[in-house]
Write a protein that binds this DNA or RNA. Structure first.
Lengths: 141, 141
DNA sequence: CTTCATGCAAAATATTTGCACGAAG
DNA sequence: CTTCGTGCAAATATTTTGCATGAAG
């Protein structure tokens, strides 16, 4: 098991490659995602964006999230209860441990688990397209 | 890895033990959950309930789901995109493989994975309160 | 009887969409 | 220029809640 390292993708490059226009709101939003080391939801991204350009709308945040998710540039997480939270893709795949008291998210990765998942899917006659592993825990005192 | 076996809990007994009144809507709703071998959402449970007693309201379904979840009698799943889906608890713990083409849910269980999860959490300084493992896959052809 | 559950309608939350206008290429 | 993206407001989807009434124990 290893903790993952943050890396900064070049979203503008990715967008251009996908033939998507680079506009001011999009530039600001991807900038925010690039700088974020947490897992903000749409509203939080909107707040950070508005601090830079107050004319940005929440709709555009949602639209941009969908767009980026579509080209695989970000991942959408639906942790229990709350709204979707987003995270830049492009780093190594990892799973999440969510602190149920603080909401903090810790990333981790286990090749053993991934391997077991594949075995299980195969035994059931499936190929895994993607998966979701979330541990909800409390800090040991 | 093993597939889990369905078993029928006595919800009325559980409710009584928890000091919760057994009303007509509740009896109908838990009856539906007992018979269900799928993972219906609130609206689907509502539809099945209305077929038995047309006076039942969707609010009551939601309230009952929350109640049953509170006493640990059912589990709430938030599979990607859709609304919460429910399943009777009381059987053995298991995880889910979701067929991305049909929405079918297959239950499975892996002690090895559970064990690895615990190790990981411990290494990160946490105790797992619960977890969620979902494999999204496509039938191998 | 007293407490609690219900149905209904309205509210709250999260997200999507139609439309007219403005900006990107 | 032409296409596409934007903000805004309204719509949608899911879930929760206030309130007056009725049922459970």
């Amino acid at each position: 098991m290893t903790k993952t390292v943050i890396h900064k993708p070049n979203y503008e490059e990715e967008l251009r490659r996908a033939g998507i226009r680079i506009t001011r709101p999009r530039r600001i939003i991807v900038g925010i995602l690039t700088e974020s080391e947490d897992h903000p939801d749409a509203l939080e991204i909107f707040r950070r964006a508005v601090a830079i350009d107050s004319s940005i709308s929440l709709s555009t945040v949602y639209r941009t999230m969908k767009l980026l998710e579509g080209i695989g540039a970000i991942h959408r997480h639906a942790f229990e209860g709350g709204p979707s939270r987003f995270e830049q893709a492009g780093g190594e795949h990892h799973d999440h441990l969510i602190d149920i008291d603080t909401g903090d998210v810790i990333e981790f990765k286990s090749d053993r688990i991934e391997q077991l998942q594949n075995e299980i899917a195969r035994q059931l006659g499936y190929d895994i397209v993607h998966h979701r592993l979330e541990l909800y825990g409390r800090k040991r005192s």
